[in-house]
Simulated scan of single mutants.
Amino acid sequence: MRVIGLTGGIASGKSSAAIILERLGAAVVDADQLAREVVAPGEEALERIVESFGAGVLNSDGTLNRAALGQIVFADPAARRTLEGITHPAIRKRADERLSRLREAGVAVTFYVAPLIYEAGLEGRFDEIWVVYLDQETQLKRLMARDGSDEEAARARIASQMPMEEKKKLGKVVIDNSGSREDLEAEVARIWRREIAAATSVSD
Rank of each mutant, 00 (worst) to 15 (best):
R2E: 13
I4M: 08
I4V: 13
G5N: 07
T7N: 03
G9N: 14
I10N: 07
G13N: 02
S15H: 06
A17H: 01
A18I: 08
A18K: 09
I20C: 08
I20W: 00
E22A: 15
E22I: 00
E22G: 09
L24Q: 05
A26K: 10
A26R: 08
A27Q: 02
V28D: 05
D30Q: 11
A31V: 04
L34R: 05
A35R: 03
A35I: 01
R36C: 09
E37G: 04
V38T: 05
A40D: 02
A40T: 04
P41C: 09
G42H: 11
E43K: 15
E43F: 02
E44F: 05
E51Y: 06
S52G: 10
G54W: 09
G56I: 02
L58W: 03
D61K: 10
L64Q: 12
L64A: 11
L64K: 13
A68S: 03
A68Q: 04
A68Y: 01
L69G: 12
G70K: 02
Q71M: 10
V73S: 10
F74S: 14
A75G: 12
D76N: 14
D76C: 10
A78K: 14
A78D: 13
A79T: 02
A79N: 08
R80T: 01
R80K: 14
L83N: 07
L83S: 09
P89H: 08
P89K: 07
K93I: 10
D96C: 12
R98F: 14
R98K: 13
S100W: 12
L102R: 08
E104N: 14
E104F: 15
E104M: 15
A105D: 01
V107C: 10
V109W: 09
A114R: 01
P115I: 04
L116Q: 01
L116P: 04
I117V: 07
L122Y: 12
E128P: 00
E128K: 01
I129A: 07
V131P: 01
V131Y: 03
V131E: 02
V131M: 04
V132R: 03
V132F: 05
D135H: 10
R142K: 11
M144F: 06
D147K: 04
D150M: 04
E151Q: 07
E151L: 03
E151V: 00
E151H: 02
E152M: 06
A156W: 08
A159S: 08
M162W: 15
E165Q: 09
K168T: 01
L170S: 05
K172I: 03
V173W: 06
V173I: 10
V173Q: 07
I175F: 07
I175H: 06
D176T: 06
S178D: 06
S178N: 15
S178R: 15
S180A: 13
E182A: 14
A186S: 11
E187V: 09
V188D: 07
A189F: 09
A189D: 10
I191Y: 04
W192P: 05
W192S: 09
R194D: 14
E195F: 08
A198I: 08
A199G: 08
V202Q: 14
D204Q: 13
